[in-house]
Design a protein around this nucleic acid. Structure first.
Lengths: 225, 225
DNA sequence: TCAAAAGTGTTAAGTTTACACCCATGA
DNA sequence: TCATGGGTGTAAACTTAACACTTTTGA
């Protein structure tokens, strides 16, 4: 063997992004209706290929940015998907990531140019290749993480009401929660701070707007919802 | 663009195995003292390269088999590691897996031929590349999983005492547990079945031997230790 | 004045934690 | 007979879950 490496094959390595958003309609994913081959006309995740000069994580960030215009987004790796024939065109080993974004902060124009749209998580169409498996795993992982760390705030605008926060967690867990018990738990989190601003959109009475203070969180990082 | 794929680079894809074992000395990992380049003389995980005709998961199984002789082992993917310069020799994107094996079932000869040895989890040497990060992530993931699913039994022989089971979980969590409370929880798991066999190795009095019944577990898969 | 959403108090049930104790056996 | 590890009972402390209630306000 002339070289430890060179007797081995090489592969295309892809990244695929499961992009979560939250609105009045609940949790959604940003999906592409592919207007390009392969699998034109079908639904898929936003993806791309890892390049020589970038890490796999950076490739995922780049791909997310190409679609949404966003930088510094909360992302987590879901895992590598490496079946031999997962992509019928060529062998591609793909690494899936999920991202949590505030829908309103994303670049609508870019999204439209990619022929992408927000689809409610409970009404997902069939997806190409193994993308549905990726979504299922991402959802489970996100749920786990969201119960133990305050990552949910990435899906909300900077100011939010407790009712919004609760319906976010109800959407993540897929089950209703008791309002009073929910609020008691939030009240114990010093880093979820009440502002003096009032939201008058959602109700006659108006609801207090809260914000997440990351600095305070890091001083005593306890979270459990 | 003549081809959707061909404008992109390709990469070596590796797999690395974090192999957990359990004995009277506690939790250990099976590590290689490398007698080959690169990084000869240093400690590393057992690894290998994905081949054209095998999935990434299958590559991990093959690599584990090459070292231990074992098939049908409990394995989970930890994730993909894709920094540009993680391997100083060539660019390699690697996918880490952890495996839980019964030390006594592994092929001692094969292990020795690879210059591998069992190293206590609390006395790990520095490892090459990003292998220490892989180990840290694997350990955390395994701990999580072990608290919610009965995967720990894969580390034990088919018959075990409750004291063994408890010290296994103490090693996984890295903290002591109350014996009585531990046993109360195990007693609620119908699928941890007492046999009529007695272990006389560990104590004068002798301890009842138990076994894990997977069929019963799948009928009501509840687990929480 | 009333519908709709915001916001709060109380208690029973269940779970966890801590600690103290007895049992069987071979050296 | 006693050191050693196997095996058990109980109660206080804490957490969770369930439900019922009051407040505010624009239409």
């Amino acid at each position: 063997m002339t070289n430890y490496y060179s007797s081995n094959p090489t592969f295309y390595v892809g990244v695929d992004c499961i992009i979560f958003g939250f609105s009045d309609d609940g949790l959604s994913l940003l999906l592409l209706k592919r207007n390009f081959e392969p699998a034109m006309g079908e639904w898929s995740l936003m993806g791309g290929f890892v390049q020589s000069d970038e890490s796999v994580d950076d490739a995922a960030k780049r791909v997310l940015r190409e679609l949404t215009g966003l930088e510094k987004v909360y992302m987590e790796q879901v895992g590598a998907f490496g079946s031999v024939r997962r992509d019928p065109g060529e062998r591609v080993i793909s690494v899936a990531y999920y991202a949590l974004i505030n829908i309103n902060a994303s670049d609508r124009q870019l999204v439209q140019e990619h022929n992408a749209s927000w689809v409610n998580i409970n009404e997902l169409p069939p997806l190409i290749f193994d993308h549905s498996t990726m979504v299922a795993q991402a959802r489970e992982l996100m749920k786990q993480k969201a119960s133990a760390e305050p990552i949910g705030f990435n899906l909300l605008p900077p100011l939010f009401t407790l009712t919004q926060l609760q319906s976010l967690y109800e959407a993540i867990y897929g089950e209703p929660m008791d309002k009073c018990n929910f609020r008691k738990r939030v009240a114990e989190m010093d880093y979820v701070e009440k502002t003096d601003k009032i939201d008058r959109q959602s109700s006659r009475r108006g609801a207090a707007l809260y914000k997440f203070n990351d600095r305070v969180y890091r001083q005593s990082p306890k979270f459990k919802i």
